[in-house]
């Protein structure tokens, strides 16, 4: 199972990437996509929405399941992956790349410490 070393993780299987411009990018892990199966729909909040760490920001549907999406960090949504509207399958094919979901400007960068490391997340899903 691919768990990139440089990312932070939530217990609910979201990953968080800290970008050079101070924003963070979020998506769900390969483990999560494996559990869900073929993703058919991703419901994401509009740009400008305030999200809070470990609270629900959206929903993801596969053919026979639905799951809530939880934010890895608090802040304001500055970009949404519009491609997922037409191609939700990107979440399956490239969960850490083209399958990203939100870009957020964090309101409290210290929250980074609340996230799991790749090693901790790997242990959680082993």
């Amino acid at each position: 199972m691919n768990i990139p070393e440089e990312l932070g993780y939530t217990k609910e299987h979201e990953w968080v990437r800290f970008n050079d411009d101070g924003t963070v990018t979020m998506g769900i892990t390969e483990f999560a996509t494996d559990q869900l199966g073929d993703v058919v729909y991703v419901d994401l909040p509009p740009v400008g929405t305030t999200v809070r760490q470990f609270e629900k920001f959206g929903e993801i549907e596969s053919v026979k399941a639905v799951s809530e999406l939880f934010s890895g960090i608090s802040g304001e949504v500055v970009e949404v992956n519009e491609k997922l509207g037409d191609q939700p399958e990107l979440v399956n094919s490239d969960p850490y790349g083209e399958g990203w979901m939100l870009r957020v400007r964090p309101s409290n960068p210290a929250e980074r410490d609340n996230l799991l490391s790749a090693a901790d997340y790997g242990a959680l899903t082993a």
Binding site: V40, Y41, E61, S62, V63, K64, A65, V66
Partner: peptide, 12 residues
């Protein structure tokens, strides 16, 4: 689009 329905989404 069965994820709308009760057998998957239950109380939601």
């Amino acid at each position: 689009l069965q994820a709308r329905e009760q057998h998957i989404r239950r109380e939601r």
